[in-house]
Computed example of a mutant assay.
Amino acid sequence: MDGQNAQDSLVVTRWLQAWGLATLISVAISAEASAQEVWNDWSGPYVGLSFGAFRSTGEAERAGYSGSLLTLDVENGLFPNSIDGSKESLTGGIGLGINRQHGAFVSGVEIDISGLDHAQELKFSRVDPNPLPPFNGIDTNTAYRTEFGTLATLRARGGYAVGRNLYFATAGLAAGRVRNTFSLDLPDLGYSSPGWSNKSTRVGYVAGLGMERRMTEHLNLKAEVLYVDLADERIKGTDSVAFPGEQIDYKFKNEAVIARVGINFTF
């Protein structure tokens, strides 16, 4: 009987071990399933912070000219057909949005505002080859300046959720403060042009791509790249006192690329 009792006790012990292991596996599976539901649920509102780089070229293109002096100057290469460069500035901002999910497809709307202080100046200098005084051999300097201020966007977002990741495209409206300035200096003649510039809040469009990753139930990390176009601005250069009847215009391309990372807090 003692041997039978020992055998029965061993069977019970092994059964309890198997039951315990099955229970642990069941709990783990349930926890994983619950976690996957959290990772895959992108519906609801959120607020976020972002930080990144703002890059523009400051491109300006000659858009027309008139007058005998300026016609000769353009032919002599004193005013470039186009000019551009490259400059980056830091930008940071806040945003809020809301998502709706249908299966794996996630759509939503986001609005954000970014602080920015970006100024880019491009310069062009040539010696006037005109053989006639008073312009023969003088330095002719032009400058093209673009300044960007606060930027806001209102965008639609759409993408697909894959596990903890959301891959999305975004597009919408953009508005920001922009100043474009064109100037001419003839230092040998002591001449500096008046203020040929325009400062305004300009409206354009924005489009981009990004990815968001769920780190916890209420915390997501994101990275995105946006292209912003705040529309071209034409600046007219005239001086009715010093150069009557002369005019040269430059068209500024107010566009930029933003690369940024951020944190979204969901509700």
Score class of each variant (00 low, 15 high):
Leu186Cys: 05
Arg202Pro: 01
Val127Gln: 02
Leu226Pro: 08
Glu217Gly: 05
Pro129Leu: 03
Pro134Tyr: 02
Pro133Trp: 06
Arg126Glu: 13
Tyr205Arg: 01
Gly149His: 02
Tyr227Val: 04
Ser86Gln: 13
Val178Trp: 02
Leu154Ala: 15
Gly115Thr: 10
Gly204Leu: 10
Thr150Lys: 10
Asn130Val: 01
Ile98Asn: 11
Ala174Glu: 01
Gly210Gln: 08
Pro129Val: 06
Ser89Lys: 02
Leu219Thr: 15
Lys87Ser: 15
Thr170Trp: 05
Pro131Asn: 12
Thr146Val: 11
Gly204Pro: 07
Ala169Trp: 06
Ile94Glu: 05
Pro134Cys: 01
Gly97Gln: 06
Ala156His: 02
Leu90Ser: 12
His218Val: 06
Gly208Arg: 07
Asn141Ser: 09
Leu154Glu: 05
Gly93Val: 10
Leu122Trp: 01
Gly137Phe: 01
Phe182Asn: 14
Gln120Cys: 04
Phe105Asn: 04
Thr150Ile: 12
Gln101Asp: 08
Pro187His: 09
Gln101Tyr: 11
Pro129Lys: 11
Ser183Trp: 02
Gly208Ala: 03
Val203Cys: 05
Asp188Ser: 11
Tyr227His: 09
Val178Phe: 03
Asn198Glu: 14
Pro187Trp: 03
Gly210Val: 06
Pro129Gln: 11
Tyr144Glu: 00
Leu219Arg: 03
Gly195Phe: 02
Gly172Val: 03
Glu110Ile: 12
Ala143Phe: 05
Leu173Val: 09
Ser197Gln: 14
Asn220Ser: 14
Leu132Pro: 08
Asp185Cys: 02
Gly95Leu: 15
Leu189Trp: 06
Leu154Phe: 13
Asn99Val: 07
Phe105Gly: 02
Asp112Leu: 10
Lys87Phe: 11
Phe135Arg: 14
Thr181Glu: 15
Pro187Cys: 09
Gly210Asn: 05
Leu122Arg: 12
Ala175Thr: 13
Asp185Ile: 04
Ser114Met: 10
Ala152Lys: 08
Val206Met: 09
Tyr227Gly: 01
Ser86His: 10
Ser200Thr: 14
